[in-house]
């Protein structure tokens, strides 16, 4: 299981980009931290989630 924003998700084996899209996130609008490291935008597709990964997804909304 992968912990995403504190919730258990059955996402091991998926690449991060695919996972984000499945969860309804827009990849351009999020910052993703995996096991305390920021994942660069162009590496989202290369990173494959592993069992026990801890992922934080911060979604940005417009306005400023």
């Amino acid at each position: 299981m992968v912990t995403v924003n504190g919730e258990q998700k059955n996402a091991a084996g998926q690449n991060l980009l695919a996972f984000l899209k499945t969860e309804g996130y827009e990849p351009e609008r999020v910052v993703v931290e995996r096991n305390l490291d920021i994942v660069p935008r162009d590496e989202l597709e290369k990173v494959v989630l592993e069992d026990e990964d801890v992922v934080e997804v911060l979604r940005f909304v417009g306005g400023g």
């Binding site: 827009e26 351009e28 609008r29 660069p40 940005f60 909304v61 417009g62």
Partner: peptide, 18 residues
């Protein structure tokens, strides 16, 4: 970070942290 567009906000935060 004091942008207004969400993709720009995410880009800046991501790049600064990285």
């Amino acid at each position: 970070e004091a942008f207004d567009k969400p993709d720009q906000k995410a880009m800046l935060v991501r790049e600064l942290l990285g």
